[in-house]
Design a protein around this nucleic acid. Structure first.
Lengths: 94, 94
DNA sequence: AATCTATTTAGAAATATCTCTAAATAGATT
DNA sequence: AATCTATTTAGAGATATTTCTAAATAGATT
């Protein structure tokens, strides 16, 4: 909830890797866990951080909890970065 | 030096605020410090983190050390974010 | 209903981060 | 050269983060 949590969530390499895994498909907590050498409890902790940051959404099916990206928050972050100019995204102001 | 440091650097609210201050002008460490209720030592610590992340560049003039944004690294981060799609930046692939 | 499977929660240990005070550097001014 | 000003470095304390093991939930299967 809020920018500070979002940036905190993004600051961990494991969490960034989870986001990349979710880039093009929904995955359950267990499937995500298989990609790491960590206990399920730790993965669950990271997922909770990502959820708190609104970077992912969850849905239940049978015994599983599926996670997917919440694109709209990525867009907000991108927007924050645009204030620093750089490669003049669109050339409107020239 | 490297993505992990960059994201770590961005995870602190004080450091993000420093970046915003530097958005359109070079500032000395002292000038930056005036915007916060923290000792100069703490500001110096944050500047060192931003420097380590290559988010800022420094230059000396007289007694002062001036800091400015290093736009190229902002561009790299933006690029990382583009992988998550969202608001279809350019409509090439439709 | 008993048990199995998937996941989370609680609590603890190790490590990292942020902030301070005090001292060190280093260049500028007198 | 002595001192002043701007900033960093060192060391320490408080707090936060990451990870684990063990236990709790909760729905699915037998």
């Amino acid at each position: 909830m809020g920018f500070p949590d979002t940036f905190k969530a993004l600051s961990d390499p494991v969490r960034r890797e989870i986001l990349v895994l979710l880039k093009d498909k929904k995955l359950s907590a267990g499937e995500i866990g298989k990609h790491f050498e960590m206990t399920g409890a730790t993965i669950s902790y990271h997922l909770s951080q990502l959820k708190k940051a609104d970077l992912i959404l969850e849905s239940k099916y049978k015994n599983f909890i599926y996670y997917e990206l919440n694109i709209s928050v990525f867009e907000e972050i991108m927007l924050w970065f645009t204030q620093f100019g750089g490669k003049e995204n669109d050339k409107k102001n020239e």
